[in-house]
Nucleic acid binder design. Structure first.
Lengths: 103, 103
DNA sequence: AACTTTGGAAACCGGTTGGTTGCATATATA
DNA sequence: TATATATGCAACCAACCGGTTTCCAAAGTT
């Protein structure tokens, strides 16, 4: 039951759902139409995405609109930052090397 | 057996390994010392990381040094970019709104 | 009130995962 | 050459995952 965002985006169907609802909220049925699977399977994916707060629900009559919690996506970005520092510094090292050779 | 980078980083132990070897190459034994698990378990994680080319090996005598393929990490960054556009544009929308209110 | 639509929950199933234990191989070292 | 060290691989196992089928509840529609 331990959900975290990295486990949530590990599944390709869930990543596709995230992309799908990033720009506009959608109902489970509407989402399921985009995949070759049952509505119930999509419902399970939505539950996992909801559990780790990547997705929020907005009930509207008997329909429920799901949309992306875009702020939560920044957690991935945050984890990546430590590596960005490394690859940027490697660029700098390469840059320094090239400057030295030039001289 | 289909490995992809998102599945690779889904496991917390593997994420910790990635961080550990990001700055300096390490042998499986040295890596295993940092975790409360067997060397063989770490070996399996390293195999998965190697399979999806997140990690590269450098044999040196009877030891094998593992280090991070930092370029591969950019694939995650690449996938995140589509959302970065969204959260930046939301910032802009908020910005526009604030400007309008100010007027 | 009876029917339809929307969506969640439970039970089940086969495949995968992460771990352990035991073994094999290759490289040092005595 | 015999021994110790470093590592990978195979077999096994309990837990988990993603999917299906079945069922139930709530909200519209007739």
């Amino acid at each position: 039951m331990r959900r975290d965002i990295f486990q949530a985006i590990a599944d390709p169907t869930r990543r596709a759902i995230i992309v799908l609802i990033a720009l506009q909220a959608m109902t489970p049925n509407a989402i399921a139409e985009h995949f070759d699977t049952t509505r119930q399977a999509i419902s399970k994916h939505l539950r996992i995405l909801t559990e780790c707060e990547l997705v929020k629900q907005e009930p509207q009559g008997r329909e429920i609109y799901y949309s992306l919690e875009i702020e939560k996506m920044k957690e991935i970005e945050k984890w990546l930052e430590q590596f960005k520092k490394i690859w940027e510094s490697r660029f700098n090292q390469l840059d320094n090397l090239l400057t030295t050779i030039k001289k």
